[in-house]
Amino acid sequence: MSAVLDNLVSAQSFPELSVVIPARNEAAGLQQLLPKLKAAFPGAEIIVSDDGSTDSTAAVAVAEGVRVVSRPYGAGNGAAIKAGARMASRDLIVFMDGDGQHQTEDIARLLAKFSEGYDMVVGARNPGGQANRHRGLANAFYNRLASWMVGHRVADLTSGFRVTRRKKFLEFLHLLPNGFSYPTTSTMAFFRAGYAVAYEAIDVKPRLAGTTSHIRLWRDGTRFLLIIFKIGTLYSPLKLFAPISLAFFSLGLGYYAYTFFTQHRFTNMSVLLFSAAVIIFLIGLISEQITALMYGGSGANGRDDS
């Protein structure tokens, strides 16, 4: 690993690498980040995707000589990511934030891990890198739930610092929301499509003075949760439908036992609960078959399109 990392660091030129930075009012962060990126990776294509900033974000990027794609109004972090990914022309894409939290030197570590044969490598923040205790607890819950949904350990579901192949990322571009759930969607999509995903531990620095997070815990937390269930339903429907079906069946069985011993009869409520259990299970089974057919002949079935 160290030898590969040393080679990556010393190469200083990555003609196959695009760096996409979604930015909204991140002029201060970009003034520090872009010179470092250009010095560390002079051969890389650097793209700043300006999501309707009202400060000098676009002007800073233009002054640094990097590519800029701008929106006339803010549509969300996911929309900026999609615009940057479409503009990227290199084989590999690194996604990172422009607020000063992600470090340029960690890119080489992600690339070194990626070179081991993974399809996506995500920078997993240490516990101290969470914005606050509540955000850390919420992310831990999301990680556990997503791990159960996809059947693999998800170390950091919401980290936006990652490297992947452009072709494979574009396969799921239509699934990405325009808001702040792009890391959630892309991570779960890669896992459920059978692609190899790895995590590399990283340290993140506090946001630069004058920059604030655009994520709101309760509002966007609910959206993250819905995205997890949405992607889980899309890629592994029985993971959701089977437990719900079992819950209804258990309720029906319990209610039947209660009415049998107290009233000596089989009630309509028990019939309704048993029927709901069967219907929900059958819906999940049909959804599972549709999912298998949908990905049976696509590039997301594990075939390497690189």
Rank of each mutant, 00 (worst) to 15 (best):
Q130W: 14
Q130N: 13
A131W: 14
N132K: 06
R133M: 09
H134R: 09
R135K: 10
R135Y: 12
G136H: 10
A138P: 00
A140R: 04
A140K: 08
F141R: 13
Y142I: 01
R144E: 10
L145Q: 09
A146M: 04
S147H: 04
S147K: 02
W148S: 10
W148I: 06
W148A: 09
M149G: 08
M149Q: 06
M149V: 08
M149C: 09
V150Q: 03
V150T: 01
V150E: 05
V150C: 12
V150R: 01
V154Q: 03
D156L: 09
D156Q: 05
D156M: 11
D156C: 06
D156H: 11
L157G: 01
T158I: 15
T158Y: 12
G160N: 13
G160C: 14
G160M: 15
F161R: 14
F161D: 14
R162V: 01
R162D: 03
T164G: 03
T164S: 07
R165D: 05
R166Y: 00
R166N: 00
R166K: 02
K167A: 10
K168D: 12
K168G: 07
K168N: 10
K168S: 07
F169G: 01
F169P: 04
F169C: 03
L170P: 08
L170D: 11
L173G: 15
L173N: 14
L175W: 03
L176D: 12
L176F: 05
P177W: 14
P177L: 15
P177E: 14
N178C: 10
F180I: 12
F180D: 13
F180N: 15
S181R: 15
S181T: 05
S181Y: 07
S181D: 07
Y182H: 15
Y182S: 15
P183V: 13
P183E: 13
P183K: 15
T184F: 11
T184M: 13
T184A: 15
T184V: 14
T185R: 11
T185K: 08
T185L: 06
T185H: 04
M188H: 08
A189K: 02
F190C: 00
F190N: 00
R192G: 04
A193V: 01
A193Q: 01
A193M: 02
A193S: 03
A193C: 03
G194D: 10
G194L: 08
Y195D: 09
Y195N: 05
A196I: 04
A196Q: 15
V197K: 03
V197G: 14
V197R: 03
A198M: 10
A198N: 12
Y199R: 01
I202A: 00
D203M: 08
D203E: 13
D203R: 08
V204L: 05
K205A: 11
K205Q: 14
P206Y: 12
P206N: 13
R207D: 02
R207G: 06
L208V: 12
L208D: 09
L208K: 07
L208E: 09
A209Q: 08
G210M: 00
G210H: 00
G210F: 01
T212V: 06
T212E: 05
S213W: 04
I215G: 05
R216W: 03
L217M: 05
W218N: 03
R219Y: 08
R219D: 04
R219P: 06
R219C: 00
R219G: 00
G221C: 07
R223Q: 09
F224V: 13
L225N: 05
L226W: 13
I227L: 11
I227V: 13
F229P: 12
F229T: 05
F229E: 05
